[in-house]
């Protein structure tokens, strides 16, 4: 696949951190942090990983699986970082996408409708709720957007993130692909910001990182 170049700017926007969760494996900047056997159920994997690695956050276990997946990936991505303090709350943006929207939770919610509709499931029947959960946790108040694509769209995400920074709407953008339906769960989050370190934010690089951590 030949990629178009992202929106050009004079600034150097790099991917400074990236994290993936796929097949019960967590990688940060390409290095494997944790692996569990593939037969370990997703819920068990997420719970044990959270218990061992994330700082306590009571609301975590009330989230749906899609949010838990995105939230946990963001905890690894942003560990030891305080972007809100570094750049200012309103300058941190989130740009996420996936294929199945919130269908996994939609189905779970629909199954409760026949009996007693679950309010706590209903609130998660939108995929962009994961952006809210991450924003609340990290005090992010910048622009955020969620898209549904057939597959990972490096060109689009790269252009959008670059534009946000070029137009000074954001100083840092978390680009995320978080997909969950039935037995398929994958999260790939990357942090793009003006920096001398990291990998240049161009579509080829974003796609390469996504594929190599997939």
């Amino acid at each position: 696949m030949r990629h178009k170049h992202c929106v050009s700017t004079k600034m150097k926007i790099n991917i400074t951190n990236y994290c993936s969760i796929h097949n019960n494996q967590i990688k940060l900047n390409g290095e494997t942090l944790l692996v569990k056997e593939k037969q370990v159920p997703f819920n068990e994997f997420i719970k044990s990983t959270y218990d061992l690695n994330a700082s306590p956050y009571m609301k975590f276990f009330k989230m749906d699986d899609l949010c838990k997946l995105a939230f946990l990936a963001s905890e690894f991505l942003l560990k030891n970082k305080n972007l809100a303090e570094q750049y200012g709350s309103s300058t941190i943006s989130l740009l996420f996408a996936n294929t199945s929207s919130s269908l996994d939770t939609d189905i779970n919610y629909y199954n409760t409708v026949k009996d007693f509709p679950s309010p706590s499931l209903f609130v998660y029947t939108l995929p962009n709720i994961m952006l809210g959960e991450i924003s609340i946790r990290n005090k992010f108040k910048g622009e955020n957007a969620f898209f549904v694509f057939e597959q990972f769209q490096a060109d689009f995400l790269c252009n959008y993130a670059t534009q946000l920074i070029a137009e000074k709407k954001a100083k840092a953008v978390i680009i995320g692909w978080v997909e969950l339906l039935n037995d398929n769960q994958e999260a790939f989050l990357s942090l793009a910001e003006e920096s001398e370190n990291g990998t240049e934010l161009i579509a080829e690089n974003l796609e390469r990182l996504y594929i190599s951590n997939h």
């Binding site: 009330k62 007693f116 309010p119």
Partner: peptide
């Protein structure tokens, strides 16, 4: 316990169910 508004709705469901 620090419950929120969604929890309140869940408690209503709990009583009915």
């Amino acid at each position: 316990l620090g419950l929120d508004s969604i929890d309140a709705l869940e408690l209503i469901v709990l009583l009915e169910k």
